[in-house]
Amino acid sequence: MKGWHVRDIIFVTILAIFMGTIFFVTGPLYTVLAAALAPAGLQPLANELLLGIWVMAGPLAGFIIRIPGSATLGEFLGAVVEMFFGGIWGASTLISGALQGIGSELGFALTGYKHYGWFTLALSSLTTAIVTFGWDMIKNGYASYHLGFMALLFVVRLLSIFFFGGVLTKLIANLLVRAHVLPSAAH
């Protein structure tokens, strides 16, 4: 199995900063969405809808670098970047970043870092959604929502993560395979 070298470390960090930068471009979108949904008491939905973009660095790093720990590191570094450059959530960003990373890492770990295809990405999306939702139940009091609304939040979150962390990641990987940057996904 490959180990970490300075080149991979720099790559993950640059990728994390890129993802952070792209996310900042969508910052206003989140604010507008949150503000529009807030009066109806649906503000968390804005969070759920866009969470997929947030957690994309994890599966992307995991899929490209293929070293155990890369998904976690990619996502965690994204959080570090956010904390130092403009983010306001501070310590909780780091904790959520680490948890999101571990969540998507689980998907890759469960398939033994051997299969890089749809199944792994779908699994990774599911584990990310479960881990992050568990954390929000504790941290943001999601546990005290009515069951129906909680289910709605979870489903929206899962779909968002699957779209950005699953479908979009696979499409990007396909492009990279065509450019011969990644080995062809035969397995």
Partner: peptide, 12 residues
């Protein structure tokens, strides 16, 4: 917004 949402949609 979160507290408002929790009190509308939840039982906190």
């Amino acid at each position: 917004a979160l507290v408002w949402s929790l009190s509308l949609q939840g039982s906190a």
